[in-house]
Design a protein around this nucleic acid. Structure first.
Length: 881
RNA sequence: GCAGGGGUCGCAUAGUCUGGUCAAUUGCACGAGGCCUAGGACCUCGCGGGUUAGUCCCUACGGGAGUUCAAAUCUCUCCCCCUGCACCA
């Protein structure tokens, strides 16, 4: 079969007939869904194929069922990636050039990217994605496309969205600690890090120690309770330290810590420099216990960590104990915490047990630290020495203790990541508190409850994902919704902030409903005032006035309102499971915030797994990211579509296996053969076998339809291809070849199969339906209807008894060797009579000379071994000789 | 650490909610045979162990314990794996 030729042909016909352009039609029920917008820094690849094909298949399924179906697609350019990509391209980054080329850009294109910049590249990839989507046969209404961050009209829509949210009090301003790169002047997200993935800002306590001269040495710790056990401080003699004025106090901190404090909103004034060396040997006063303790040299102290000053608690911190020993200083450890299973000094015990000799054995020391810390935190009880906290558990008293210390001004706080974070630019990051950051108030209880109400009204495919959404709603906290860099829409009231990428792609589905009008009439952004959007989406305002102010004619505005009213809400949104915790849930938050009336809230969500390739995760380094275009050019789209769409269901990962392609192509080829040979089916009469086939067909229609409905395509296709094919083969064989089949029955079956697989193989289905004599588009239906009355349960049962008997005969023959004659004994007349027809078939199949059928109660039967006594209903007894 | 999802006969998958009809579905791989316009396909059978004229028995669904006449399926516990954890698409 020439898949590619067939595909080209039908894609052209669809285009010409505009069958995927969905318009308002009050007489028809609508179905509205959209593809998750792809990011435009490359073409769509095999990773997109699963989600996209599932959505397209579902849209096609609904269209065939008679829904006026709108499948829309837009494009995403918000954020950093395309900027970064062009940046790298300009630096002739090899991997970036390779990536672009893999997706089909030529050298000339790359030159243009460099010359014309990110917006040009974004639009270039948009066109490539559209081309690939068409090759795949996605049934998209392209009149409604847009690019976020680049289309001025869309950006205006985002402005309206945020103005609306702000009016309702859902956008708030706040301060927030982030991991920050000084060099890039931006927050360093997980994937922007060379080192330190998963690290997040943690609040450390700063305990103050006072020099005799009055300056304060602050030490950062997560274990302020050990202040009672501090024996000394550690300072790196090689590091430069700075005297700074903070509030009314003078602090001494490492050079590296100065910027950190500035970034954490402390008013820091540098007033002098002091080397680490000069601090060593001095003594400080522990401001909690009033004890004097020495400052010792600690070469292991990293001046870039926290304040560069470290307090030493040898009884409870393995590092400190080992360092003291290494230094050869005799200091009496002070025990603060009593822990079951340990003696006075847990840190010493553990260090010795692990045989740690040097501060350089960091791995062992980290182990030891974590053992001691966990044990002490969860089960440790504070000793007498801690005064008012004595007898309490560490875990219970910690917060109280911190509050007390801060109140007494013997402690302060500092944000720091627990482990080293290095930015991709190779700079070391620290924590910065961002001021005046704009947040979506996802922590709002009432807002959360509204989302939960929305979830309770929705359908989820698979149903198991519902609980994940509910958990996400509970877990979600305020979400920073704007950044200072990247492409995007500026917050209308605070222009230095740009709405970030997960926050401007949550209600764009509404924009599709009016994008056609905007695109076709070239409506400018300026004309799209908040008033217009209020009218179109919320039904507010006076049409005449709006028309006058915006210079848009009334009909146009009313048309947009009608189109929105007709197509909204979203009937299905489907994505991979990684978006559950963000995009999909955010979309619910925004919908319930903007539209009070639940009738505009999303109706159903679908969630699926990731795509793996031959069992492996996709990765650039593995070279297994295949552009969809390449796959389609190699195999044809229908085969690719059905192979990936049925690779898995529920939330399991879908594995792309090239091996299984041939399973589908051979099935489709034999389907084509059957269609071609249909006219050779000559039998006019109708027999039991025909009713059997009709009954089986009905079951398959039912099974396929029900499974498709909940996006269980793998199970659905089990019916629509595999089961039906096996039954068809059986039917044809029992009819003694295609010429013995009833043409009407066969045609009916073939038409049904062609329709049932059309959501996955639309091109081939169009072709075969045409060959079957229909002149309409199968893409527009009809969907095979399930008719219960066509199922003959009696015949189904009897034919299955017959099949079972075939198996039994084969087994017996295998064990007993070849036989000449067969005798079958039945309990009921019903079975006996049913078996009369296929006697010839049995004879031919097993090469018997003679077959005789008896009622087991028949006195005149031939039964030398009394086999007939074994006959049961549903299982005739067998005697062979 | 927090949250969610899992561990089934070589691999992958169904079955678990609603205990029995489950030695357990389906695809791939593998083995035997058949077929052809000898290109790979296609068809039939087998694929835990033993046994039989279509049968029956034993051992089995991550480990262990329990509930029950009966457990892959329910309860408890342990071990292991995967995913997400935010200013990032």
């Amino acid at each position: 079969m020439d898949f590619k030729k067939i595909e080209k042909k039908w894609q052209a016909k669809w285009d010409e007939a505009k069958i995927f352009e969905a318009n308002v039609n009050p007489k028809k029920k609508k179905f509205f869904t959209s593809i998750i917008i792809p990011y435009v820094n490359g073409n769509i690849h095999i990773g997109h194929s699963f989600t996209y094909t599932r959505i397209d298949a579902y849209a096609r399924f609904k269209r065939m069922q008679g829904f006026n179906t709108l499948l829309a697609e837009g494009f995403h350019a918000t954020g950093e990636p395309i900027l970064g990509a062009i940046e790298r391209l300009k630096k002739n980054d090899k991997s970036q050039i390779e990536t672009f080329k893999m997706y089909g850009a030529t050298d000339k294109d790359l030159q243009m990217f460099k010359r014309k910049g990110p917006e040009f590249a974004a639009k270039f990839w948009m066109e490539k994605i559209i081309e690939s989507s068409k090759l795949m046969g996605f049934s998209v209404d392209w009149r409604r496309k847009f690019v976020t961050a680049i289309d001025p009209a869309f950006n205006r829509f985002i402005e309206w969205q945020y103005n609306t949210l702000r009016k309702k009090g859902y956008v708030i301003q706040g301060t927030h600690p982030v991991i920050w790169c000084l060099h890039d002047q931006s927050p360093t997200g997980d994937h922007d890090r060379l080192k330190g993935e998963g690290e997040s800002p943690t609040e450390f306590v700063l305990l103050k120690f006072k020099l005799e001269s009055g300056e304060i040495l602050p030490c950062a710790t997560l274990r302020p309770e050990t202040i009672y056990g501090v024996t000394n401080l550690w300072v790196n003699p090689a590091a430069e330290h700075v005297k700074v004025k903070i509030d009314d106090e003078t602090w001494i901190i490492s050079r590296e810590a100065v910027q950190k404090f500035k970034d954490q909103l402390k008013d820091v004034k540098e007033i002098g420099i002091i080397s680490g060396k000069r601090l060593i040997g001095k003594s400080v006063r522990n401001m909690v216990t009033n004890q004097r303790i020495p400052i010792l040299q600690g070469k292991f102290v990293d001046p870039a960590t926290a304040t560069g000053i470290v307090m030493s608690v040898p009884s409870h911190a393995p590092y400190d104990y080992v360092a003291l020993k290494e230094l050869g200083v005799e200091i009496e450890p002070i025990s603060v915490i009593k822990v079951e299973g340990f003696g006075e000094h847990p840190a010493i015990e553990v260090s010795e047990k692990l045989g740690i000799k040097s501060t350089k054995e960091t791995e062992k020391l980290d182990d030891a630290t974590s053992i001691v810390y966990k044990k002490e935190f969860h089960t440790g009880v504070l000793r007498e020495i801690t005064g008012k906290y004595a007898g309490k558990k560490v875990s219970e008293v910690k917060n109280e203790l911190i509050e007390d210390f801060v109140k007494q001004n013997v402690a302060d706080k500092i944000w720091e990541s627990s482990n080293l974070v290095i930015c991709r630019c190779t700079n070391r990051c620290h924590v910065k508190i961002l001021e005046n950051q704009w947040f979506l108030k996802f922590s709002d209880k009432e807002w959360k409850n509204k989302v939960k109400q929305c979830i309770s009204q929705m359908k989820f495919h698979p149903e198991e994902s519902r609980i994940q959404f509910l958990n996400t709603v509970d877990w979600l906290d305020d979400k920073a919704c704007a950044r200072k860099s990247g492409l995007g829409t500026r917050l209308p009231w605070d222009k230095e902030w740009i709405v970030e990428t997960l926050s401007d792609s949550v209600i764009y589905m509404a924009y599709y409903t009016i994008a056609r009008t905007i695109n076709e009439n070239k409506i400018s952004a300026e004309q799209l005032t908040d008033g217009i959007f209020d009218y179109v989406f919320l039904g507010k305002g006076n049409l005449k006035e709006l028309s006058k102010n915006s210079k848009l004619n009334e009909k146009l505005i009313r048309g947009m309102r009608e189109e929105f009213e007709y197509f909204y809400p979203v009937d299905l949104r489907n994505s991979a499971k990684e978006l559950v915790q963000n995009h999909l849930t955010y979309a619910l938050f925004h919908h319930v915030a903007i539209w009070n009336d639940p009738k505009y809230w999303p109706k159903a969500y679908g969630v699926n797994g990731f795509v793996t390739v031959s069992g492996e995760k996709m990765a650039k380094s593995k070279g297994n990211i295949i552009p969809l275009k390449n796959l389609v050019e190699k195999y044809g789209s229908d085969i690719v579509r059905i192979n990936i769409a049925t690779a898995n269901e529920n939330m399991d990962d879908a594995d792309w296996k090239e091996d299984s392609l041939k399973t589908f192509s051979s099935r489709l080829a034999s389907l084509e053969q059957l269609v071609k040979n249909l006219k050779r089916a000559k039998r006019k009469s109708v027999n039991n076998l025909d009713s059997y086939m009709e009954s089986v067909l009905q079951n398959c229609i039912k099974g396929a339809t029900e499974n498709y409905e909940t996006m269980k395509f793998r199970s659905g296709v089990q019916y629509s291809i595999f089961q039906i094919f096996n039954e068809l083969n059986y039917y044809i064989e029992r009819c003694d070849g295609i010429k013995g089949c009833n043409q009407g029955v066969l045609k009916n079956c073939l038409s049904a199969v062609v329709s049932l697989i059309a959501p996955f193989t639309p091109h081939i289905s169009e072709e075969l339906r045409y060959n079957l004599g229909h002149k309409d588009f199968i893409s527009l239906g009809p969907w095979p209807s399930f008719e219960d009355k066509k199922i003959d349960k009696n015949i189904l049962e009897l034919e299955n008894i017959f099949k079972k008997t075939l198996e039994d005969l084969a087994k017996v023959l295998k064990l007993a060797g070849k036989k000449k004659n067969a005798y079958l004994y039945f309990v009921t007349d019903k079975e006996l009579n049913y078996f009369k027809d296929p006697v010839a078939y049995l004879q031919k199949m097993f090469d018997f000379k003679k077959i005789e059928l008896y009622k087991s109660s028949d006195r005149n039967k031939y039964d030398p071994e009394n086999k007939s006594s074994r006959a049961k209903y549903g299982r005739p007894a067998i005697y062979l000789e």
